[in-house]
Amino acid sequence: MQTNTIYILLADDDEDDRTFFRDAFAEIKINANVNVVHDGEELMSYLKRTDIILPHILFLDLNMPRKNGLECLAEIKQLEHLNDMAVAIYSTSASEKDIEESFVRGANIYIKKPNDFDSLIKTLNIATTINWQYHTDSLNKDTFLLRIE
């Protein structure tokens, strides 16, 4: 395992989306370690495990069974050891309500799932190469939503 490897975690209940996600990362020329969980509850128990390396970025789907993305987000922000983890909302919806809610609850970026594969690659590329420190400090409603069509 190399030191400049970037650890990525995706929480999404949709199998196709998980496949797209993995395939996209396979195309991106970076050292990425992609893990996936299938729903909110699995996500939370995974993040509470001690034998894992905490992900740098969590891609969090909002619409999941058992525990949805927003609930998970709220719980994550309560946990101190996850403070350094960037949370990227990764959702089909681009409704004002969802965007505002996740902004208020402390997500770092909002990604609307793109409609074609090339856009997906571009989006994920940007999302993983962001200078998170800088991005988080200057976060506002306009920079929060990442949308590449």
């Binding site: 196709d16 409609n115 074609d116």
Partner: peptide, 9 residues
């Protein structure tokens, strides 16, 4: 979205 993505692939 999935249809579109699959087509793009």
């Amino acid at each position: 979205r999935k249809i579109q993505t699959f087509i793009s692939r």
